[in-house]
């Protein structure tokens, strides 16, 4: 997206809300993500009034309420469709769609697939804690095999959903994975994702100390590593291969396809007229001419 203003360095505090009662548990990985995202946006000098945070429902999806900006907190699983529409209705807005893994990959799985195909110029941030937090600890699509919950009493036996591999298979324009425990690198990844023109996915490993005792900070530290500098981000096959590794999980930018036209470009609505939709009115003269054709006159 290309809608940040240039000027003096922005302070991340510009996004802080006063007097808020944060609903997250102590030690939750959502806290660092909130802080990192504010920093990333400030460094990119995205104006709060020019930004829309769109989310679904879940613990992660509450993040916009801790942000001083425009917010569309919609339904569980449904952040991507309104995010797409908001960007299409007014391309000057910077749009981020953000939720948990259950929301984005489970309830909203179909939108996840098709939003990638549609390629709106939005950033999709997924707080991936491999569990359903808000509903108290059931398996999520990314829960690992064997993960026991009060519902999955014998442990998860479904193949875990691999969002990166799916996104790369769909030729998404920007595919990355980060870890909430590493602010510096995560911030850099987020900045690149936000700057990317077109749909960008950042799946962020986010420990949930309350309901995921398996995938803890420590576990993520031990099971992740960064893609080497030599990794070719433009090589789709290589990216796919790296996304399907299981022993250790890599972090970083897996894949970039810079040549894709965005949804807003493809729909053609702004080709001749830059005005956002709210500034437009129908051309009644043109409508009259159109209705004329229903006379079937010679």
């Amino acid at each position: 997206m290309a809608c940040w203003i240039m000027g003096k360095t922005m302070d991340a505090q510009i996004f802080d809300m006063d007097n808020i009662d944060v609903a997250w548990c102590p030690g939750c990985g959502n806290f660092p993500i909130l802080m990192i995202l504010k920093k990333a946006l400030a460094e990119l000098e995205v104006e709060p009034a020019n930004l829309v945070l769109v989310s679904g429902i879940g613990q992660a999806a509450k993040i916009p309420h801790y942000f001083k900006t425009n917010v569309f907190n919609g339904l569980h699983g449904r952040a991507l469709p309104p995010a797409t529409a908001i960007k299409a209705a007014n391309p000057a807005l910077a749009v981020i769609a953000q939720s948990g893994d259950g929301d984005m990959y489970g309830e909203g799985g179909n939108h996840f697939l098709h939003t990638i195909r549609r390629n709106p110029d939005i950033t999709n941030i997924v707080h991936n804690n491999m569990v359903y937090g808000l509903t108290k600890g059931q398996a999520s699509p990314t829960s690992q095999m064997g993960f026991r919950t009060p519902v999955q009493v014998n442990g998860v036996f479904l193949e875990p959903f691999n969002p990166l591999a799916v996104a790369i298979a769909l030729n998404a324009g920007f595919v990355a994975r980060a870890f909430a425990g590493d602010s510096e690198q995560t911030k850099e990844i987020l900045k690149k994702a936000i700057k990317h023109k077109g749909y960008a996915l950042v799946d962020i490993f986010q420990p949930c100390p309350s309901f995921n005792k398996l995938n803890t900070y420590q576990w993520f530290k031990e099971h992740t590593y960064y893609l080497e500098d030599s990794h070719d981000q433009y090589d789709r096959n290589e990216a796919f291969k790296r996304a399907t590794e299981t022993e250790k999980l890599s972090l970083g930018i897996f894949y970039i396809n810079p040549d894709k036209k965005t949804f807003e470009e493809n729909i053609g609505t702004y080709q001749e007229n830059q005005q956002p939709l709210y500034e437009r009115k129908p051309d009644i003269g043109k409508l009259r001419n159109l209705i004329e054709t229903f006379k079937i006159a010679d």
């Binding site: 829309v52 769109v54 569309f72 919609g74 339904l75 449904r78 991507l80 469709p81 309104p82 995010a83 797409t84 529409a85 908001i86 960007k87 299409a88 209705a89 007014n90 807005l93 179909n110 939108h111 697939l113 098709h114 549609r118 729909i267 053609g268 609505t269 007229n273 956002p276 939709l277 709210y278 500034e279 437009r280 129908p282 051309d283 043109k286 409508l287 159109l290």
Partner: peptide, 30 residues
């Protein structure tokens, strides 16, 4: 008539997406 009248016309992946898009569009002034 989308081109003539500047109408964004999108075939959504399902009706759930369709209405959530429409609500998002109104939010942004469409």
């Amino acid at each position: 008539k989308a081109k003539d009248f500047g109408i964004i016309t999108e075939q959504a992946e399902d009706e759930i997406a369709a209405i959530n898009m429409a609500v998002g569009a109104w939010y942004a002034g469409a």
